[in-house]
């Protein structure tokens, strides 16, 4: 918790303009006599960015935890199983193919982008879930996810190929992943939606614990498997979809954070892992974001680069070292 507060403050302080620590604390506690420039920077840029990092970190880690627990697959996660790619497809349809959802539904831009991404995620996840009912093999499931990821990326590439330069550029920037570009309006859409996702997954907590013994045991203990499947599909599609819509694809948070939580808390108890992954996810994404600002310089690296650079070695070392992960995959 302390670590979380520290990383929040760090995340707000780091950026191309140096803001004294005292001013930040003063601003956060509602002081009005700040330097107006600082107030604008914090209010318009830093705070939304920090909130976005908190939401994305929490939501992505939780999606990863839910998917790993449900599939009993240590390498499951929104990125690996193609759920994020589904979101990309939804966003691409909106920004590149120019399907005007806003005009259709009367929804604002922020809502329509969230909706299309969530629907894209939902579509991919439903196919994966359906396939998982037939395939009970861990590796097959992962391969399936990768195949879906590739197929959706191909569709996105086709749209990229035929689209205008300016929308292409917008889409490209989006695909780098960016926590800083969110407006308060977009946050007003993302926060409640991810919140709903978190509440939905809270409902699945007990069932997931029983699922750790396998599906037959779970059924024999009265776990409503159908309800659970829908809960997982809905909550992770909403969370991963909406986050991907606004922040771009962010790799490795979903797959890595639950493992870090398991290592740190040394338990498989969902009641510990759930809040643990939430907190760790927030902290880690805040730290990654602070690193991405390249402190002391004017550069800002795409967040996806940082999470991938840090996450890939983590997953590799996990595969090589952890015999539990190895035994689960064999």
């Amino acid at each position: 918790m302390v670590l979380l507060i520290l990383s929040v403050v760090l995340s707000i302080s780091v950026g191309s303009v140096l803001i004294p620590f005292g001013d930040i604390v003063a601003y956060l506690f509602g002081s009005k006599d700040n330097h107006p420039l600082f107030a604008t920077i914090i209010g318009k840029f830093r705070l939304p960015k920090t909130l976005a990092a908190l939401t994305a970190g929490a939501g992505l880690s939780l999606s990863g935890l839910l998917m790993q627990s449900y599939f009993r697959n240590p390498l499951a996660g929104p990125y690996v199983l193609g759920i994020s790619s589904g979101a990309s497809l939804g966003v691409a349809l909106l920004t590149l193919a120019g399907i005007n959802l806003a005009a259709f539904t009367g929804l604002g831009h922020a809502w329509s982008i969230a909706l299309s991404a969530a629907l894209g995620s939902l579509a991919v996840f439903m196919v994966i879930m359906y396939a998982s009912l037939r395939i009970h093999n861990h590796v097959m499931l992962l391969i399936l996810g990768i195949m879906f990821g590739s197929a959706t990326s191909a569709l996105v590439s086709i749209m990229q190929y035929f689209s205008q330069a300016d929308s292409l550029q917008r889409f490209l920037f989006w695909s780098f992943g960016n926590l800083g570009g969110l407006t308060w309006q977009e946050l007003q859409v993302m926060l409640p939606l991810v919140g709903i996702g978190i509440l939905l997954s809270l409902w699945a907590l007990k069932d997931l614990q029983a699922m750790s013994l396998g599906e037959t045991y779970a059924a024999s203990m009265g776990v409503p498997l159908k309800k659970l499947r829908w809960l997982i599909v809905l909550s992770t599609s909403i969370m991963a979809g909406v986050i991907t819509a606004f922040c771009g694809p962010i790799a490795f948070v979903g797959i890595g954070v639950p493992h870090l939580a398991r290592l740190l808390f040394r338990t498989a108890n969902q009641q510990v892992l759930f809040p643990g992954s939430l907190l760790l996810g927030m902290i880690i994404l805040l730290l990654c974001d602070s690193i991405a600002q390249v402190p002391g310089s004017d550069y800002t690296l795409p967040i996806n680069i940082i999470t991938s650079l840090l996450g890939a070695p983590l997953v590799i070392s996990m595969l090589l070292k952890n015999r539990n992960v190895k035994s689960m995959l064999s």
């Binding site: 750790s212 013994l213 040394r266 338990t267 539990n324 689960m328």
Partner: peptide, 9 residues
């Protein structure tokens, strides 16, 4: 008969 794959439990 399935051996549960549980770790840290």
């Amino acid at each position: 008969t399935d051996k549960p794959a549980l770790w840290s439990t």
